[in-house]
Design a protein around this nucleic acid. Structure first.
Lengths: 98, 98
DNA sequence: TCCATAACTTTGAAGCACAAAGTGCTTTAA
DNA sequence: TTAAAGCACTTTGTGCTTCAAAGTTATGGA
Protein backbone atom coordinates (compact mmCIF):
# COMPACT_ATOMS: atom_id res chain seq x y z
CA UNK A 1 0.00 0.00 0.00
CA UNK A 2 1.13 3.53 -0.70
CA UNK A 3 1.40 5.86 2.24
CA UNK A 4 -1.96 7.65 2.22
CA UNK A 5 -0.75 10.81 3.93
CA UNK A 6 2.12 11.41 1.55
CA UNK A 7 -0.08 13.13 -1.01
CA UNK A 8 -1.39 15.72 1.43
CA UNK A 9 -0.07 19.23 1.01
CA UNK A 10 1.79 20.56 4.04
CA UNK A 11 0.64 24.07 3.38
CA UNK A 12 -2.90 22.92 4.02
CA UNK A 13 -2.13 21.23 7.32
CA UNK A 14 -3.09 24.54 8.86
CA UNK A 15 -6.79 24.97 9.45
CA UNK A 16 -6.48 28.69 8.89
CA UNK A 17 -4.84 28.36 5.49
CA UNK A 18 -7.43 25.74 4.61
CA UNK A 19 -10.12 28.19 5.65
CA UNK A 20 -8.66 31.00 3.58
CA UNK A 21 -8.48 28.78 0.51
CA UNK A 22 -12.02 27.55 1.02
CA UNK A 23 -13.21 31.11 1.02
CA UNK A 24 -11.12 32.24 -1.94
CA UNK A 25 -12.01 29.26 -4.08
CA UNK A 26 -15.63 30.33 -4.15
CA UNK A 27 -15.26 34.11 -3.75
CA UNK A 28 -13.48 36.11 -6.35
CA UNK A 29 -11.80 38.83 -4.33
CA UNK A 30 -12.01 39.04 -0.58
CA UNK A 31 -10.62 41.86 1.53
CA UNK A 32 -8.26 41.49 4.45
CA UNK A 33 -10.97 42.63 6.81
CA UNK A 34 -13.58 40.28 5.46
CA UNK A 35 -11.23 37.35 5.90
CA UNK A 36 -10.34 38.56 9.36
CA UNK A 37 -13.97 38.71 10.37
CA UNK A 38 -15.01 35.46 8.74
CA UNK A 39 -12.19 33.51 10.32
CA UNK A 40 -12.11 35.46 13.58
CA UNK A 41 -8.41 36.10 13.59
CA UNK A 42 -6.08 38.81 14.78
CA UNK A 43 -4.43 40.94 12.10
CA UNK A 44 -1.00 39.48 12.67
CA UNK A 45 -2.11 35.91 12.58
CA UNK A 46 -4.09 36.35 9.39
CA UNK A 47 -1.32 38.35 7.74
CA UNK A 48 1.26 35.67 8.41
CA UNK A 49 -0.88 32.88 7.00
CA UNK A 50 -1.71 34.99 3.96
CA UNK A 51 1.99 35.53 3.56
CA UNK A 52 2.65 31.79 3.57
CA UNK A 53 0.00 31.27 0.91
CA UNK A 54 1.38 34.12 -1.14
CA UNK A 55 4.93 32.74 -0.93
CA UNK A 56 3.59 29.46 -2.28
CA UNK A 57 1.88 31.45 -5.05
CA UNK A 58 -1.46 30.00 -4.10
CA UNK A 59 -2.99 33.44 -3.65
CA UNK A 60 -2.19 36.92 -4.85
CA UNK A 61 -2.83 40.39 -3.55
CA UNK A 62 -4.68 43.10 -5.35
CA UNK A 63 -4.30 46.69 -4.21
CA UNK A 64 -7.06 48.89 -5.46
CA UNK A 65 -8.61 52.22 -4.64
CA UNK A 66 -12.12 52.78 -3.51
CA UNK A 67 -12.32 56.48 -4.11
CA UNK A 68 -9.14 57.67 -2.44
CA UNK A 69 -8.89 54.85 0.03
CA UNK A 70 -6.76 51.81 -0.67
CA UNK A 71 -8.42 48.46 -0.46
CA UNK A 72 -6.52 45.19 -0.35
CA UNK A 73 -8.16 42.07 -1.66
CA UNK A 74 -6.90 38.54 -2.04
CA UNK A 75 -7.49 36.15 -4.90
CA UNK A 76 -6.71 32.53 -5.48
CA UNK A 77 -4.28 31.76 -8.30
CA UNK A 78 -4.57 28.99 -10.87
CA UNK A 79 -1.76 27.16 -9.07
CA UNK A 80 -3.63 27.62 -5.81
CA UNK A 81 -6.79 26.14 -7.27
CA UNK A 82 -4.90 23.13 -8.55
CA UNK A 83 -3.04 22.58 -5.29
CA UNK A 84 -6.21 22.91 -3.27
CA UNK A 85 -8.06 20.47 -5.50
CA UNK A 86 -5.17 18.00 -5.37
CA UNK A 87 -5.17 18.21 -1.60
CA UNK A 88 -8.88 17.58 -1.37
CA UNK A 89 -8.57 14.65 -3.76
CA UNK A 90 -5.79 13.17 -1.63
CA UNK A 91 -7.90 13.66 1.47
CA UNK A 92 -10.85 11.94 -0.10
CA UNK A 93 -8.76 9.03 -1.28
CA UNK A 94 -7.26 8.65 2.14
CA UNK A 95 -10.60 8.72 3.91
CA UNK A 96 -12.25 6.34 1.53
CA UNK A 97 -9.23 4.06 1.60
CA UNK A 98 -8.75 4.05 -2.15
CA UNK B 1 -21.49 34.10 8.72
CA UNK B 2 -20.28 31.59 11.24
CA UNK B 3 -16.57 30.98 11.41
CA UNK B 4 -16.08 27.96 9.15
CA UNK B 5 -12.95 26.67 10.83
CA UNK B 6 -14.40 26.68 14.32
CA UNK B 7 -16.09 23.31 13.85
CA UNK B 8 -12.88 21.55 12.90
CA UNK B 9 -11.43 19.22 15.49
CA UNK B 10 -7.94 20.21 16.65
CA UNK B 11 -6.96 16.62 17.15
CA UNK B 12 -7.36 16.07 13.44
CA UNK B 13 -5.22 19.02 12.42
CA UNK B 14 -2.40 16.50 12.33
CA UNK B 15 -2.11 14.59 9.07
CA UNK B 16 -0.77 11.59 10.92
CA UNK B 17 -3.70 11.36 13.31
CA UNK B 18 -6.02 11.87 10.35
CA UNK B 19 -4.24 9.02 8.60
CA UNK B 20 -4.56 6.71 11.60
CA UNK B 21 -8.26 7.43 11.90
CA UNK B 22 -8.81 6.88 8.19
CA UNK B 23 -7.24 3.48 8.49
CA UNK B 24 -9.05 2.49 11.66
CA UNK B 25 -12.42 3.64 10.45
CA UNK B 26 -12.38 1.00 7.72
CA UNK B 27 -10.20 -1.66 9.36
CA UNK B 28 -11.29 -3.37 12.48
CA UNK B 29 -8.05 -3.98 14.34
CA UNK B 30 -4.71 -2.82 13.03
CA UNK B 31 -1.36 -3.58 14.65
CA UNK B 32 1.26 -1.06 15.64
CA UNK B 33 3.55 -2.39 12.96
CA UNK B 34 1.00 -2.30 10.22
CA UNK B 35 0.24 1.32 11.03
CA UNK B 36 3.92 2.08 11.16
CA UNK B 37 4.47 0.60 7.73
CA UNK B 38 1.40 2.08 6.12
CA UNK B 39 2.15 5.56 7.35
CA UNK B 40 5.94 5.30 7.11
CA UNK B 41 6.66 6.58 10.57
CA UNK B 42 9.23 6.04 13.25
CA UNK B 43 8.10 4.12 16.32
CA UNK B 44 8.26 7.11 18.59
CA UNK B 45 6.37 9.38 16.31
CA UNK B 46 3.59 6.87 15.76
CA UNK B 47 3.42 6.00 19.45
CA UNK B 48 3.01 9.60 20.46
CA UNK B 49 0.21 10.25 17.99
CA UNK B 50 -1.54 7.04 19.04
CA UNK B 51 -1.22 8.26 22.58
CA UNK B 52 -2.92 11.54 21.73
CA UNK B 53 -5.78 9.66 20.09
CA UNK B 54 -6.05 7.31 23.03
CA UNK B 55 -6.12 10.20 25.52
CA UNK B 56 -9.02 11.62 23.56
CA UNK B 57 -10.67 8.20 23.70
CA UNK B 58 -10.91 8.11 19.94
CA UNK B 59 -9.06 4.81 19.76
CA UNK B 60 -8.35 1.98 22.14
CA UNK B 61 -5.63 -0.60 22.48
CA UNK B 62 -6.13 -4.31 22.42
CA UNK B 63 -3.38 -6.54 23.73
CA UNK B 64 -3.78 -10.07 22.50
CA UNK B 65 -1.67 -13.17 22.15
CA UNK B 66 -0.74 -14.86 18.95
CA UNK B 67 0.45 -18.13 20.40
CA UNK B 68 2.65 -16.94 23.24
CA UNK B 69 3.60 -13.68 21.64
CA UNK B 70 1.79 -10.48 22.50
CA UNK B 71 0.27 -8.52 19.69
CA UNK B 72 -0.96 -4.96 20.04
CA UNK B 73 -3.76 -3.77 17.86
CA UNK B 74 -5.64 -0.51 17.74
CA UNK B 75 -9.34 0.02 17.24
CA UNK B 76 -11.50 3.06 16.74
CA UNK B 77 -14.06 3.78 19.47
CA UNK B 78 -17.63 4.88 19.00
CA UNK B 79 -16.62 8.35 20.18
CA UNK B 80 -13.79 8.29 17.70
CA UNK B 81 -16.12 7.43 14.85
CA UNK B 82 -18.44 10.24 15.78
CA UNK B 83 -15.65 12.78 16.16
CA UNK B 84 -14.10 11.76 12.87
CA UNK B 85 -17.39 11.99 11.06
CA UNK B 86 -18.13 15.37 12.61
CA UNK B 87 -14.75 16.62 11.50
CA UNK B 88 -15.27 15.43 7.95
CA UNK B 89 -18.70 17.02 7.88
CA UNK B 90 -17.23 20.31 9.09
CA UNK B 91 -14.53 20.09 6.45
CA UNK B 92 -17.05 19.46 3.74
CA UNK B 93 -19.22 22.33 4.85
CA UNK B 94 -16.27 24.63 4.93
CA UNK B 95 -15.07 23.65 1.49
CA UNK B 96 -18.46 23.85 -0.11
CA UNK B 97 -19.13 27.12 1.65
CA UNK B 98 -22.35 25.95 3.28
C1' DT C 1 23.68 -16.80 25.16
C1' DC C 2 23.08 -13.39 21.85
C1' DC C 3 20.55 -11.09 18.58
C1' DA C 4 16.29 -9.41 16.63
C1' DT C 5 11.73 -7.66 17.03
C1' DA C 6 7.74 -5.26 19.22
C1' DA C 7 6.10 -1.52 21.46
C1' DC C 8 6.98 1.72 23.66
C1' DT C 9 9.20 6.27 26.65
C1' DT C 10 12.29 10.01 26.93
C1' DT C 11 14.89 13.69 25.19
C1' DG C 12 15.98 17.52 22.54
C1' DA C 13 15.88 20.33 18.51
C1' DA C 14 13.31 22.72 15.11
C1' DG C 15 9.42 24.71 13.45
C1' DC C 16 4.68 26.68 13.98
C1' DA C 17 0.86 29.25 15.80
C1' DC C 18 -0.71 32.91 18.04
C1' DA C 19 -1.44 37.23 20.66
C1' DA C 20 0.12 41.57 21.48
C1' DA C 21 2.33 45.52 20.42
C1' DG C 22 4.27 48.61 17.19
C1' DT C 23 4.32 51.01 12.38
C1' DG C 24 2.91 54.05 8.60
C1' DC C 25 -0.59 55.72 6.08
C1' DT C 26 -5.27 57.62 5.53
C1' DT C 27 -9.70 59.07 6.60
C1' DT C 28 -13.19 61.05 9.48
C1' DA C 29 -14.81 63.57 13.49
C1' DA C 30 -14.40 67.54 16.95
C1' DT D 1 -6.26 71.22 12.77
C1' DT D 2 -5.27 68.17 15.88
C1' DA D 3 -7.05 63.85 17.39
C1' DA D 4 -8.86 59.46 17.00
C1' DA D 5 -9.75 55.50 14.49
C1' DG D 6 -9.20 52.14 10.81
C1' DC D 7 -6.42 49.38 7.47
C1' DA D 8 -2.85 46.40 6.54
C1' DC D 9 0.57 45.04 7.87
C1' DT D 10 5.62 43.66 10.65
C1' DT D 11 7.99 42.38 14.69
C1' DT D 12 8.55 40.04 18.87
C1' DG D 13 8.17 36.55 22.19
C1' DT D 14 6.02 32.60 24.27
C1' DG D 15 4.33 28.23 24.22
C1' DC D 16 3.01 24.21 21.74
C1' DT D 17 3.71 20.52 18.29
C1' DT D 18 6.25 17.56 15.59
C1' DC D 19 9.68 14.53 14.81
C1' DA D 20 13.92 11.68 14.89
C1' DA D 21 16.96 9.36 17.62
C1' DA D 22 18.22 6.93 21.36
C1' DG D 23 17.10 4.34 25.33
C1' DT D 24 13.96 0.67 27.60
C1' DT D 25 11.67 -3.64 28.65
C1' DA D 26 10.05 -7.89 27.33
C1' DT D 27 9.86 -11.87 24.39
C1' DG D 28 11.30 -15.21 20.85
C1' DG D 29 14.31 -17.57 18.01
C1' DA D 30 19.16 -19.29 16.51
Amino acid sequence: MVNPIGALNKIFDSRIRLGVMSILVVNDAVSFNELKQMLELTDGNLASHLNTLEQAEYIKVQKAFIGRKTNTTYLITELGKQAFKAHLDALEKMIKGI
